[in-house]
Each structure stands twice: as structure tokens, then as C-alpha cells.
């Protein structure tokens, strides 16, 4: 997995590529927490180049969401591939997160 973070709108965008699993999700957690501790808002996470997410990746996002909500911030997930959004749907998390098809469609 690779992570590239840039300024985006009034917050940041975290662009991910590759697989998010038990090996790589700690790196994603560290990245997100580093921005959450600074109360960055909003945080966009771009999944366009992500090929795989397991439950450790899902748990990392849920933890980030809980922490961001703690300061009334928002976590917006962008361009989640079909194979991954299907996992969100199965776990009934699709309405828990703000999910957008692309970066231009999210506020």
C-alpha cells in the first residue's frame, strides 16, 4: 500500500493505493491519527487505486470516524471500488460513512 496526502478543499485528501490488510492497515492508522490529533477537518480518503480491503482496514476507518466525530469533523470516503463497497454493504456500514463516487461530488 502507498499513501500520498495533499491539501484538499479546507482539509486534506489521503490517497491510497494497493492492498489494505493486517500488514498495511497500521500504516494507514498512523497516517489518519496524525491528522486527527491536529483536528484536521474534513479528511477525505481516496480509494480509487485500492484493490483490496480486509476487516483490519475497515476497523481502522471506523476508529478514525469515531475520533473525527469527537471534534465534529467529517471523514469522507471517495471512489471505493465495487468489490470493496460490497463489503461495506454486507457489514451495513455504507450509511455509517459518507461515501462519494468521486472527489468532485463531495462537499
Amino acid at each position: 500500500m502507498k499513501i500520498v496526502t495533499d491539501s484538499f478543499k479546507s482539509g486534506i485528501i489521503v490517497r491510497l493505493s494497493g492492498d489494505i490488510d493486517l500488514e498495511t492497515s497500521p500504516e494507514l492508522r498512523t497516517e489518519l491519527i496524525s491528522h486527527i490529533t491536529k483536528k484536521v477537518n474534513p479528511i477525505f480518503v481516496d480509494f480509487e487505486a485500492v484493490s483490496y480491503v480486509d476487516s483490519s482496514g475497515i476497523a481502522t476507518l471506523v476508529e478514525a470516524l469515531k475520533l473525527i466525530k469527537g471534534y465534529n469533523g467529517s471523514l469522507k470516503l471517495i471512489a471505493i471500488p465495487k468489490s470493496v463497497i460490497e463489503i461495506f454493504n454486507f457489514l451495513k456500514l455504507e450509511k455509517v460513512f459518507e461515501i462519494y463516487t468521486d472527489a468532485s461530488s463531495c462537499g
Binding site: 476487516s55 471506523v62 470516524l65 457489514l91
Partner: peptide, 16 residues
Amino acid sequence: IGEIRTGGYGLHLIRR
């Protein structure tokens, strides 16, 4: 399923 928590999803995915 459907609860917001930071773990416990894996077994659901195995059972699926």
C-alpha cells in the same frame, strides 16, 4: 452486524 465498532467483522466475512 451493523454496529459501529473497531473489531469483530472478520467472522461475519468468514461466515458469508
